[in-house]
């Protein structure tokens, strides 16, 4: 893998997703951009309602150079299945069929179709860019919004600390289908993401990458910190880099010491209100998860 692996240095200069109207510092658009540089011209993409479809397909200004279509909000997985079946029936070989869906489109409204698609074992790649809320509609809580995050439907006040639910464990839900390949990634660790994209492109069967994607607009963070914050999220243990292959989980990065959670969270407007007791809840949940991952995963 090392000899022909795609790196920031040797990747193509060609852009497949450009001229779109995403916010400055958008982590989701970075996830899409890098993925298409790995997948290349022979890519058919489907994107449900969400930020990337909203910013990439405004007639007559189309932002994708490869084939791309907006799917229904709940129907990314099934539209990908239909595209793959159609291409197979027409004899189109060596083409990638790829979905890019946000956290709401994946963990909430699109979960049924995603589960069906994985169950069918088709050769499709599904990428969830997780910016931890319904950003396109103006920052509402999703199933992947973390504890304590202020959104426009989980306000922080005297009675509630923002979202009172922990993030849905989607990576392991996907893995429980015994999917051919699944991984988590972060826009803060681009080489790790590129490696995983290459693996997903090569695997026979369905693959899933869940990439943590910063959203300056929704998180209340400076645009220039999008990459460093996404890196810090991993370093603080609030996100993790892992893979699921051949029935086994592997942790790709095991920080010896976590970056301080409080320092990381308080850089973000959505967490500014958190009390020390809330941060304790977050740290405890993190430690519980890491204890389990370190014990059971490679």
């Amino acid at each position: 893998m090392s000899s022909n692996r795609i790196t920031v240095k040797n990747m193509t200069d060609k852009e497949y997703f450009l001229g779109h109207k995403a916010c400055a510092g958008c982590g989701g658009s970075l996830a899409v951009r890098l993925a298409l540089k790995v997948f290349g011209d022979r890519t058919f993409a489907a994107l449900p309602a969400g930020c990337m479809s909203a910013v990439g397909f405004i007639y007559p200004q189309m932002a994708f150079l490869n084939n791309a279509i907006i799917s229904t909000f709940p129907g990314t997985g099934s539209m990908l299945s239909g595209m793959r079946a159609g291409l197979d029936a027409l004899g189109v070989k060596d083409a990638h069929v790829v979905g890019f869906a946000g956290d709401g489109g994946t963990a909430d409204i699109g979960l049924q179709a995603l589960s069906g698609a994985i169950d069918r074992r088709e050769k499709i790649i599904y990428i969830c860019y997780d910016n931890e809320a319904y950003m396109n509609t103006g920052v509402q809580k999703s199933g992947l919004t973390p504890y304590g995050a202020r959104t426009t439907t989980s306000p922080a006040g005297n009675n509630l600390p923002g979202s009172v639910m922990q993030k849905k464990n989607l990576f392991e839900i996907v893995a429980a289908h015994d999917i051919a390949y699944a991984a988590t990634a972060s826009v803060g660790y681009p080489q790790d993401y590129l490696n995983k994209l290459s693996k997903a492109a090569a695997v026979e069967g369905t693959s899933y990458i869940h990439i943590y994607a910063t959203c300056p607009t929704g998180w209340g963070t400076p645009t220039e910190t999008s990459v460093s914050l996404a890196k810090e999220a991993v370093d603080s243990g609030l996100w993790y880099l892992a893979e699921y292959e051949d029935g086994a989980f592997t942790l790709n990065r095991k920080p010896k010491e976590f970056f301080p959670v409080k320092e990381h969270l308080l850089k973000q407007g959505r967490f500014k209100h958190l009390k020390d007791s809330d941060i304790k809840v977050i740290e405890e949940a993190r430690d519980k998860k890491w204890k389990r991952m370190l014990e059971k995963w490679n």
Partner: peptide, 27 residues
Amino acid sequence: DAKYIHVESEHSAMSAAMGASSVGARA
């Protein structure tokens, strides 16, 4: 001689048919 997709709902039945049609297949 057709690809037969077992979908998980009617919503997905239509969604998959649209996916097939979008690449030029008869669905």
